[in-house]
Simulated scan of single mutants.
Amino acid sequence: MDHRHLVEEKLSSEELVKGHFLHAFRDTVKLPDGGTATREYIVHPGAVMIVPLLEDAGGGIRVVLERQFRYPVGQVMVEFPAGKLDSGEDLQLCAQRELLEETGFTASEWARAGVLHPVVSYSTEFIDIWFARGLTSGERQLDQGEFLDVFTASPTELLQWCRDGTITDGKTLTAALWLQNVLSGAWVLNWHPAAVPVRAG
């Protein structure tokens, strides 16, 4: 489809704030009808989210989740493990790193589900969605100043929490949709082994 009649053209750009990892701008744009407007937005490095699948003793599936206080909203949120990309970092290696650091788990198999854009009106942020299975537990490697609880839940519990408002985090709601469709067989994942980091020297 031809979408050129919807596209805005950047005319100028002004830096507003440069923080530790967020970068804010105000641009002047040319609108499709020839008028002009301003657009304020945040440049974000991108992130990954992991849906870790853990087999229970009865052969059923449980998912690994986290509870973490999120300062901007002033609440403890239930979320899937996630974290931002380092500069130049491979997406799967980032997912493997974040899963280990936050939960202590490593996974023998991985599958990329897709990508989501959580706040398209004011941020460039994207979140790459990964599934992980064949989990082995180990020691967490939390960042300095990072505090979170790790726990497991059944897919039924997860969906109930999405419905009743216990979970309001957008990326986790999206992951629950993916999980529901994967477990039903409606959406198929392409599983492959864990990636091995390339070591210098």
Rank of each mutant, 00 (worst) to 15 (best):
A95F: 00
E102L: 14
E101M: 08
W187Y: 15
D90Q: 09
S184W: 06
G88N: 10
Y41W: 15
F105N: 02
T124D: 07
S123I: 13
D56G: 04
V48A: 04
E89Y: 07
I61K: 06
V182A: 07
E146N: 00
F151I: 12
E89Q: 15
H192E: 05
G83T: 08
P52T: 08
D56Q: 03
R140K: 14
D33L: 07
V150E: 06
M49L: 14
G58K: 03
V119L: 15
P32G: 05
P197C: 08
D27F: 07
K18T: 08
W191L: 01
N190T: 02
L158E: 10
V182P: 09
T156G: 14
A113G: 06
G83Q: 08
K10N: 00
Y122R: 14
A153N: 02
M1L: 08
G138F: 03
A186F: 11
A200N: 11
E89C: 10
Q180F: 03
Y41A: 13
S123W: 11
V120T: 14
T152R: 06
R199G: 00
P32W: 04
L85K: 12
G35V: 03
L177A: 07
I167L: 05
H117G: 09
V119G: 07
F105S: 01
M49N: 10
I167Q: 04
E146W: 08
I42G: 03
T106G: 03
T106H: 04
E40D: 13
L159F: 13
